[in-house]
Amino acid sequence: MWEYSDKVREHFFNPRNAGPLEEANGIGDVGSIKCGDALRLMLKVNPDTEVIEEAHFQTFGCGSAIASSSALTEIIKGMTVDAALGVSNQDIADYLDGLPPEKMHCSVMGREALQAAVANYRGEVWKDDHEEGALICKCFAVDAVMIEDVVKANNLNTVEEVTFYTKAGGGCAACHEGIEEILARVKGERPGGGETSPPPVCPAAPETAKPKPSKLTSVQRIKIIEEVLESVRPMLRRDHGDVDLVEVQGKKIFVTLKGACSGCMMEAATLGGVQQKMIEALGELVQVLPASLMPVE
């Protein structure tokens, strides 16, 4: 089975702030009994200062769900409501010295409970738009919902293309059959039974490629690459992260992710998103990879 960090085990066996909170004025309930996770987060917020004075939780779930809940309450106690909303899934996972890929959803649940509790405190209604699928690619933590969305949005037809867009399938290859099933299902749903294929070599090219010169010089390419990175930076900074270009080798673009993004389970997803933008901007199939994968010579 998975390895839990000592920190996870410690918070599981000795959870902080567990149990009901009588004087709570913000309560968030999230989760699903079907997949065995449910969390109630209770906040006592000082209405004058907006500081979270107490945070308690009750959790139905596995070891990491309980540990994530405990960690969340510790992190947000003493924060203002606004500051607490800046806490990311990754902050929760980092606080616990990491979570196994199968368990990252536990930290996601913590963040959602926080949003729900704050909404409740403010008299708003929080609506969850997050859908979670079965984990398909364990190497890069990509789930079925994400693969299906990307396949649909980009009209993908092969495992190779899915790997280019999402990284799923780029590791041990155990999930190729699962990816093929998703491709077959989406194909069946397409009007015309999937006859509409993107051009075989360059799935993202159709429109974006046209205005570009047929062959970019390497200076032009790097300029475009930098522009793309610039465009995603604000998004990464919101999550306390950043990205830098390290090297371009043919169709491989090596970058470093910094801050909250580096080494995290979401790194693959982040790079997948950046990669998609690169492909669109450059009009060619490229791979965006962490600099750690750069061949050493």
């Binding site: 079907k34 065995g36 996770d37 596995c62």
Partner: peptide, 28 residues
């Protein structure tokens, strides 16, 4: 939830197993 039960049992030196989603690594 079963995995939580197993972790607690394991701490007491007792090995058992569970049908929970978490222990199987699936969503159900």
């Amino acid at each position: 939830e079963g995995e939580a039960i197993l972790l607690m049992l394991n701490k007491m030196g007792i090995a058992a197993s569970s049908g929970s989603a978490c222990t199987s690594g699936s969503l159900e």
